[in-house]
C-alpha cells in the first residue's frame, strides 16, 4: 500500500477540520492505517492552521515534516506559500485562489506577497489553482469551499469517487448533505 502524506492548510474558521475528517474517514474505508493531526483552540480564531493526514500500512508520527508531503491542500494563497517547504519536490499543491489578509498586512506592518501562485508554480510545477470560493458560491453555499477542495484533491488519490461520496454522506450533517455533494462534484469536475 502507498504511503501518502497530506497537509491541509488554511485560515482558522475556513473549515479545514471538516476536510481532514472527510479525508481521514475515506482513507479508512480503503483499509489504510490513518492518523489525522488537527488543530483546536487558539489558532482556530483566524490564525494559520494546519492539519496533517498520513496514510500507510502503519503510521507512527502524525506529523508531516518538511519535504515530506505528497499533497498540500491550501485553502488560502499565503498559507500555501507558508507551508510549501513541506511539499516534496514532485508533490502536488492544490491551492484555493483566495486572499485573506493577516492582521500585520491589515495594520500595514507587513506586505502580502505578490503573484504567489505564479512563483510557486516555477518551483513546484505540479500546482493546481482553483477559485473554490466562486465554485462554492455557484453551488449555493459559501461554506462548502472545503468540500469543493476535497473534490479537486480526490482525483489525485487512489480512493474511488463513490467512497468519497459515501463518506461525505456520513460525515456532513444531514441537512447539508445535498449541497456538499454538489460541491464535491463541482470540485471533482473542475
Amino acid at each position: 500500500m502507498n504511503k501518502i502524506s497530506i497537509m491541509i492548510v488554511g485560515v482558522g474558521g475556513q473549515g479545514t477540520l471538516l476536510a481532514s475528517r472527510i479525508l481521514g474517514a475515506a482513507a479508512l474505508k480503503k483499509g489504510y492505517d490513518v492518523k489525522v493531526s488537527e488543530v483546536h483552540g487558539m489558532s482556530q480564531r483566524g490564525g494559520s492552521v494546519v492539519t496533517y493526514v498520513k496514510l500507510a500500512d502503519k503510521v507512527y508520527s502524525p506529523i508531516v515534516e518538511k519535504g515530506e508531503a505528497d499533497i498540500i491542500l491550501a485553502f488560502e494563497k499565503l498559507e500555501a506559500l507558508r507551508w510549501i517547504d513541506h511539499l516534496k519536490k514532485d508533490g502536488k499543491l492544490i491551492v484555493n485562489d483566495q486572499r485573506i489578509d493577516p492582521m500585520p498586512v491589515i495594520t500595514g506592518v507587513a506586505k502580502y506577497p505578490e503573484n504567489i501562485i505564479e512563483k510557486i508554480k516555477v518551483n513546484y510545477p505540479n500546482t493546481i489553482a482553483v477559485d473554490a470560493l466562486q465554485i462554492a458560491k455557484s453551488c449555493g453555499n459559501l461554506r462548502t469551499v472545503n468540500v469543493v477542495l476535497i473534490g479537486v484533491m480526490a482525483k489525485s488519490t487512489d480512493i474511488e469517487k463513490e467512497v468519497w461520496i459515501e463518506t461525505i454522506k456520513e460525515v456532513v450533517p444531514q441537512k447539508f448533505v445535498d449541497v456538499n455533494i454538489k460541491a464535491f462534484e463541482a470540485g471533482y469536475n473542475a
Partner: peptide
C-alpha cells in the same frame, strides 16, 4: 540534515489569531 530550499525567498507575514 534535511536539505533546505531557498524558496520562498521573501518574508512571509505571520498570521496570528485574531478576534472574529
Amino acid at each position: 540534515r534535511q536539505e533546505t530550499s531557498s524558496f520562498p525567498d521573501e518574508p512571509i507575514p505571520v498570521r496570528p489569531p485574531v478576534m472574529c
